[in-house]
């Protein structure tokens, strides 16, 4: 089991959020057991706050997923480790999977041992709300910038509580390239004439 290899890592959600900007919370963020976190029935809250300073929270993901928890179906199924095209369920996901194209498939990111968790590159299990740890295990440069609020979207207050959008808040994890979207209408030239 790959998940056993990565036990007792210091990379927990509390640790990461402390890096985001709360020196005060560094003291309480010790060495958490990633598996212990994964074993919780409810996904852990990704809010870090302290009495002294404003809170930085990461938008949760799991509660936005219509089919979560995955185990509600998968507990009745035996995991099939064979890389294959899905023809019965998740056919849409299958079709739109454009992530590291030929290499990626379900169990590269989803844990086979616990389908309600994600598995990062070195084997730790993380919750769906901590998807940034999974993304960052390959895209380390982006995770570094995201922790510093250089990459990614931050909402709320520049002075006060902030809400950070996690990777999956903007990128579809199965097709992460930001899609082309319709622009808002163009302004008018000052004369009132339409541009040609």
């Amino acid at each position: 089991m790959r998940s056993a290899i990565g036990a007792h890592q210091d990379l927990s959600s509390a640790g990461v959020l402390a890096i985001i900007g709360l020196a005060a919370s560094l003291a309480v963020a010790g060495c958490h057991d990633a598996q212990a976190q994964a074993a919780q029935s409810e996904p852990s809250s990704t809010t870090a706050s302290s009495a002294a300073g404003p809170a930085v929270s990461v938008e949760p993901r799991a509660k936005l997923l219509p089919t979560f928890p995955c185990s509600s179906c998968h507990q009745h199924l035996k995991p099939n480790p064979e890389k294959r095209e899905l023809k019965e369920f998740h056919t849409v996901r299958n079709k739109e999977l454009h992530h590291g194209d030929s290499a990626a498939w379900c169990y590269q990111c989803h844990s086979m041992a616990n389908i309600d968790r994600l598995v990062i590159a070195r084997g730790d299990l993380v919750t769906f709300d901590e998807a940034f740890l999974l993304c960052g295990s390959c895209h380390g440069d982006k995770l570094r910038d995201w922790k510093l609020a250089i990459h990614g979207k931050t909402m709320g207050h520049w002075r006060g509580d902030k809400i950070k959008r996690s990777c999956t808040g903007c990128h579809n994890p199965h097709a992460p390239k930001f899609p082309a979207i319709e622009p808002e209408a163009a302004p008018w030239p000052p004369t009132g004439m339409k541009a040609h």
């Binding site: 979207k153 931050t154 909402m155 709320g156 520049w158 979207i181």
Partner: peptide, 14 residues
Amino acid sequence: TGRYPACLEACPTG
């Protein structure tokens, strides 16, 4: 009052 400008909050690409 400590909030972000409207343009920043609206930007879908961050």
